[in-house]
Simulated assay, not measured.
Amino acid sequence: MKTKLYHLLEHRAADCRYFVIPVWKGSGYTTMFMQVQMPHILFTGLEDYKARGTQAAPYFTVSHYKEFAETKDLVLIRGDIVFVNKLTDSEAKWLLETAQSFYLNDTRYKLVERFNKKTSEFDFKDVLRALDMPVM
């Protein structure tokens, strides 16, 4: 990731730390709850988070490494799937790319802001539409 994009992600994540992203699984989707504490991002199942709160174990963790930010204009990213029975490699890759798109795309970021700041106005169907997923 380019350093400029990382700084935008970091700035927006400091303001809006949480979001929900559906991951398509065959005939439906599983909703993932995302918590951003830069340089880390944690993903867990929304149902697990509802049941266990902060004690819910992450399914997937992402860490950003800024060692090359100044010299190479590059931030390295490492993702680790904690529960391989909950998330495949391709789903985790898609989840990270999608999460980044919600924080780095101005239009999509409005949904993140609404989720964090105007909860009563947030509609999950808007996330599904943004991702071209069927509204069920």
Rank of each mutant, 00 (worst) to 15 (best):
Y103M: 03
A14K: 14
W94R: 10
K2Y: 09
N105D: 15
F33Y: 12
A92D: 04
L46G: 01
A13K: 02
I41W: 02
H11F: 04
Y59W: 13
R78L: 12
H7G: 00
F68W: 08
A14G: 05
Q55H: 11
V36S: 13
G45I: 02
L111V: 08
L46S: 05
D15Y: 08
G45N: 05
E91T: 06
I41C: 06
D48P: 01
L74Y: 12
T54W: 10
T30Q: 14
E47C: 01
M1H: 09
T44L: 05
S63L: 09
F124A: 02
M34Y: 04
I77V: 15
W94T: 11
S101W: 04
V75T: 02
T44W: 02
Q37W: 02
E10H: 07
Q55L: 13
T107S: 12
I77E: 14
D132H: 13
V135K: 03
P39W: 07
I77D: 08
L128H: 05
F122E: 04
V112L: 04
A51G: 05
K110I: 03
L9R: 10
D89P: 03
F19N: 04
V84W: 08
R129P: 04
L96V: 07
V62T: 06
E67L: 09
V23L: 08
T44P: 04
L46A: 05
L9S: 09
N105C: 15
P39L: 06
F115S: 00
N116F: 04
M133K: 13
F83P: 00
A69N: 01
V82M: 15
I77M: 14
A51P: 03
T3D: 11
F122Y: 13
D89L: 10
S120K: 14
D89F: 11
F43N: 01
K50H: 15
K25W: 00
L5K: 15
C16W: 06
Y6W: 11
I41P: 01
Q55S: 14
Y59R: 06
Y29W: 14
D123N: 07
C16A: 15
T71N: 13
V127A: 01
T71Q: 14
Y65S: 13
R108V: 06
L74T: 10
I77K: 10
K25F: 04
N105E: 15
Q35R: 14
Y29G: 00
E10W: 01
I81D: 01
P58I: 01
K50L: 11
N85L: 14
Y6S: 00
